[in-house]
Design a protein around this nucleic acid. Structure first.
Length: 466
RNA sequence: GGCGGCAUAGCCAAGAGGUAAGGCAGAGGACUGCAACUCCUUUAUCACCGGUUCGAUUCCGGUUGCCGCCUCCA
C-alpha cells in the first residue's frame, strides 16, 4: 500500500515518493498574525496536521514547517490603529494562533519560522535573484522580472499573456512589466524597517516562504501546502523565485485545501462573514469542530452553520457512546470465548480499511465512515451475552488509534466523580432496587443538571458527561 | 475575457463503467420501571440534453445553476 496525493501541479493524484527515504519535508503557509484566525484559516491547520499525522502513522519522519508572517502592510496598519508595535501585535496573535489551533488538536510544527527572524536569508535570497538577472531594483523597491522565468504559470495553469489581459493587475509605475511582483519594499516614513543593499525597507510577501523553505528544508521539498487562494499568485510566485534562484525544482507535491463557506460563499476577512476560531472553540467541543471539518474531503468546500455543527455533534456522539460502552463492558468481560480470534481478525480489518481510505489522498470522509463501521461492529459485539476482554481491548485501542490519526483524542478524560456524585449514584441504585422510581428519577434529573448523564444497562449503571 | 471546481435521498457526505458507502433527522419495532444507549426494519430512476458502450449516475460533448482564482486573503 502506498499513499496517493493530489498534486495541483499536475491536477492528478500521484503516488507519493519522498526525496529522502522515510522522510517528508513539508512546508505549510501559515497566517499573517495581525488578528485572530477565523475557522476558514483553521481548516488548513487541521487538514495538513492530519496529513502530517497520517504520514507519521505510516512511519514517516515528517519535518513540518509552518511560518508566521509577522511583518506586512496589515500588521503595520493594525499597529498604527492599536498604538502598539508590530512585534507586540505579532507576538500576541502568534500566541493566540497556537492556543486556538492547539485546542483543535493541531500539533506544534517542528519549525515555526518568522519573517523578522530570517531577514538575512531573505535579503541574500533577493540579492541572488538580482545577481542572476531575475530581479531588478527600482527606486528602492526590488521586483521580480516575471517574464524572465519561463515556467511562470505552471501551478495555476495560466499563461503569462492571459494573466496580462486580466484587467486587475496592478500597474505600478516603477515596474518594467505589470506582471512583475515585489520582493523588497522601500520604507515609508515611520514604518518598521531593515537595512538592505537597496536601502531601508521590508520584504514583499512571497519571498519569505521561498527563503525560509530553503533554509529549513532545502532547495527541493516534498510537499508545499496551503489554502486554495494561495495557488495564485502566492505559490506561483514562490515557484518562480525559488526555481530561478536555486535552479532546482521547488516542491514535488502541491496541496491546496478548499474553503469554508457561509451561505455558500467563501468565508473571508474582507467579506466580513467570518467566525473566529477563538470564539467557536469556546462554544463547541473542539473535537466536534475537528470531526466536522474532516467529514468532508479536504479539497471540497465545506458549508458552515450551527445546524451542521449540531449534526456533526450527534454523529460524533455515536462514536463516543460506543467507546464508552466498550469500556464499561470491560468490567464484566470474560476471558474465555470461542470466537475471540474471529473478532480480533475483524477488528484488525478496520485498520486496514482505514489506511486504504487515507492512502487515497487523505480521504478523511471515507476514513470516518470506516470508524462508523468499526463502531457498528463494536455495538453488535456488545450485544453478545459474553465478551472477551481481548476483543474489547482491541475495539477500544483501535478506536483510540484511528481517531488519534485524525487528531481527535478520545477517552483521556479521567476526572473522577466527586464523592457526592458517587454517593448519589449509589443511592439511586438502592432506590431502584426498592422500586422507588420517583427518587431514582429525581437523582437522575439532578445529575443531569450537573451534566452527568446516567445510562442503565444490563451490566449496571454507567454515566457520561453531557 | 482566461483558468478551475461543484450539482447524489429531508439534511450532511463518499463512490465506481455493471443498477448507489456512511452519518444525522423521520417512521415502525425490540430492549428498559421510564428514559438514555444499542439493535432490527424503512426512505434516491445520482441537475438537464445528446453521444460512446452490451451497459453511464460514473467517460465525452453541450445546456442550466451555484461557487472560486485571475487584487490582500487559508
Amino acid at each position: 500500500m502506498a499513499i496517493n496525493v493530489y498534486n495541483t501541479l499536475t491536477r492528478k493524484k500521484e503516488l507519493f515518493t519522498p526525496i529522502e527515504e522515510g522522510k517528508v519535508k513539508m512546508y505549510v503557509c501559515g497566517p499573517t498574525v495581525y488578528n485572530y484566525i477565523h475557522i476558514g484559516n483553521a481548516r488548513p491547520a487541521i487538514v495538513f496536521d492530519t496529513v502530517r499525522r497520517y504520514f507519521e502513522y505510516r512511519g514517516y519522519d515528517v519535518h513540518y514547517v509552518l511560518n508566521f508572517t509577522d511583518v506586512d502592510d496589515k500588521l503595520i496598519k493594525a499597529a498604527n490603529e492599536m498604538g502598539e508595535g508590530v512585534t507586540e501585535i505579532a507576538n500576541r496573535f502568534i500566541d493566540a494562533y497556537k492556543e486556538d489551533v492547539g485546542a483543535l488538536g493541531v500539533k506544534e510544527a517542528v519549525d515555526h519560522p518568522r519573517v523578522t527572524e530570517n531577514m538575512e536569508e531573505i535579503i541574500s535570497f533577493i540579492q541572488g535573484l538580482v545577481d542572476k538577472g531575475y530581479a531588478y531594483e527600482a527606486g528602492g523597491d526590488v521586483y521580480f522580472r516575471t517574464r524572465s522565468f519561463d515556467n511562470y504559470g505552471k501551478l495555476s495553469h495560466q499563461s503569462v499573456d492571459e494573466l496580462r489581459s486580466g484587467s486587475r493587475i496592478e500597474v505600478g509605475d516603477k515596474k518594467e512589466d505589470p506582471l512583475d511582483f515585489t520582493l523588497w519594499k522601500n520604507a515609508k516614513p515611520g514604518e518598521i524597517t531593515w537595512d538592505s543593499p537597496w536601502g531601508t525597507g521590508r520584504p514583499g510577501w512571497h519571498i519569505e516562504c521561498s527563503a525560509m523553505a530553503k533554509k529549513y528544508l532545502g532547495d527541493t521539498i516534498d510537499i508545499h501546502a496551503g489554502g486554495q487562494d494561495l495557488t495564485f499568485p502566492h505559490h506561483e510566485n514562490e515557484i518562480a523565485q525559488s526555481e530561478a534562484h536555486n535552479g532546482e525544482s521547488f516542491a514535488r507535491y502541491w496541496m491546496h485545501n478548499g474553503y469554508i463557506n457561509i451561505d455558500n460563499e467563501k468565508m473571508s476577512k474582507s467579506l466580513g462573514n467570518f467566525i473566529l476560531a477563538h470564539d467557536l472553540v469556546k462554544k463547541h467541543d473542539p473535537k466536534v469542530i475537528r470531526f466536522f471539518m474532516l467529514s468532508v474531503q479536504y479539497r471540497h468546500p465545506i458549508n458552515f452553520s450551527d445546524e451542521l455543527l449540531k449534526g456533526a455533534k450527534s454523529s460524533f456522539e455515536r462514536i463516543q457512546n460506543a467507546y464508552e460502552n466498550i469500556r464499561h463492558r470491560k468490567e464484566t468481560a470474560m476471558s474465555l470465548q470461542a470466537d475471540r480470534d474471529e473478532w480480533m481478525e475483524k477488528v484488525h480489518g478496520f485498520k486496514e480499511q482505514f489506511m486504504k481510505e487515507m492512502d487515497d489522498d487523505f480521504n478523511t470522509a471515507n476514513a470516518i465512515s470506516v470508524i462508523f463501521d468499526l463502531t457498528k461492529a463494536a455495538n453488535l459485539y456488545l450485544q453478545e451475552s459474553q465478551t472477551h476482554v481481548d476483543v474489547l481491548d482491541a475495539f477500544e485501542q483501535t478506536l483510540e488509534e484511528l481517531l488519534r490519526v485524525l487528531g481527535i483524542q478520545i477517552g483521556e478524560e479521567t476526572d473522577l466523580l466527586d464523592e457526592e456524585i458517587d454517593a448519589l449514584i449509589e443511592e439511586r441504585k438502592q432506590a431502584r432496587k426498592d422500586r422507588n422510581f420517583e427518587r431514582a428519577d429525581q437523582i437522575r434529573d439532578e445529575l443531569k443538571d450537573r451534566d452527568i448523564i446516567l445510562e442503565d444497562t444490563s451490566q449496571g449503571t454507567r454515566w457520561k458527561r453531557g
